[in-house]
């Protein structure tokens, strides 16, 4: 290693030769991109809370999968998509009503998660199940999960591309979309299913509790940076993937600077996202301050 490279990053070489790191980079990266893109629409539709509820209930699926010996991806995805379908059937139109439905789903999700985690811990050998499900298991994802997870991510991206213009039109006003022949309800359902893919992927990687950060943080920062939908989506993706890959790198590295304990990758990811969000507000906050002083 070169003398002038920062002594703290002592693991750079090993980092790129570690297969757990490869899996984490691939699945974490795809979860990040999908969450960021879906997140822009989530912010536009004011459905952040629904996203969080779906993440929580998907973790019930993840913990159930552990119990029944199913692949975790199947558990996370199936539960989130079932809940998304259920939320649409209940058919809450107003945001307030939608929030109530999300709250009920969130409660049910956490309740089921508590039950399955208890059963996991008492009936299987997964003694760290709670930590895995609630805070993610980036470095312990089975390599065979990688290909299916990537396909699911591709499916979500295709949905985002297809629904791009209709979702924007609906965000302006649903009636405007209806008179143009769009089925607003069907598009809402397809969007919720896409949202459930995004949160299932990130719940599996950085954990249900923190998946909301990946869904909302990059999108919220990006729409402050750009006033155009395409660039906003690209910026959100760049923030999310930088945060995720940067977080994986720092977590891997922290193993050495914390003397073989290592800090959780989720912590680093969320911190980077939070910093990006703060930076995006800087220009507006400064302008507001200047206006307040000069006014």
């Amino acid at each position: 290693m070169a003398m002038f490279s920062p002594a703290i990053f002592i693991t750079t070489a090993g980092f790129f030769h570690n297969s757990a790191v490869h899996v984490a980079l691939a699945i974490g990266g795809s979860a990040a991109v999908v969450s960021a893109i879906v997140g822009v629409f989530t912010v536009l539709r004011a459905q952040s809370f629904a996203g969080h509820a779906l993440a929580d209930i998907s973790s019930a699926g993840g913990s159930a999968a552990l119990l029944f010996g199913l692949p975790p991806l199947v558990g996370f995805l199936a539960m989130a998509m079932l809940a998304a379908g259920g939320m649409e059937v209940v058919g809450a139109r107003q945001i307030r009503e939608r929030d109530l439905v999300s709250g009920v789903v969130l409660g049910a999700g956490l309740g089921l998660t508590a039950l399955f985690l208890y059963l996991d811990i008492s009936m299987t050998t997964a003694s760290n199940a709670a930590n895995m499900v609630m805070f993610g298991s980036m470095f312990t994802i089975a390599p065979e999960t990688m290909i299916p997870a990537l396909w699911v991510a591709v499916l979500a991206l295709v949905m985002c591309v297809l629904l791009y213009r209709p979702l924007l039109l609906i965000a302006i006003d649903p009636d405007l979309a209806t008179i143009r022949g769009l089925n607003v309800r069907l598009i809402g359902l397809l969007y919720l299913l896409t949202l459930s893919i995004a949160v299932a992927l990130s719940a599996m990687t950085i954990g249900a509790i923190l998946s909301t950060a990946l869904l909302i943080g990059p999108a919220a920062a990006a729409i402050r940076w750009s006033c155009r939908p395409g660039p906003a989506i690209i910026i959100a993706s760049v923030i999310a993937i930088s945060a995720t890959w940067g977080g994986i790198f720092l977590a891997y590295d922290s193993f050495y600077w914390t003397r073989n304990h290592g800090w959780p990758v989720s912590f680093f990811i969320v911190t980077i996202i939070f910093l990006a969000y703060l930076a995006s507000g800087r220009t507006t906050a400064l302008a507001r301050l200047r206006r307040a002083i000069t006014a």
Partner: peptide, 9 residues
């Protein structure tokens, strides 16, 4: 013009 079309313009 084309908000009801699928896909990115």
């Amino acid at each position: 013009i084309d908000g009801h079309h699928l896909g990115v313009p």
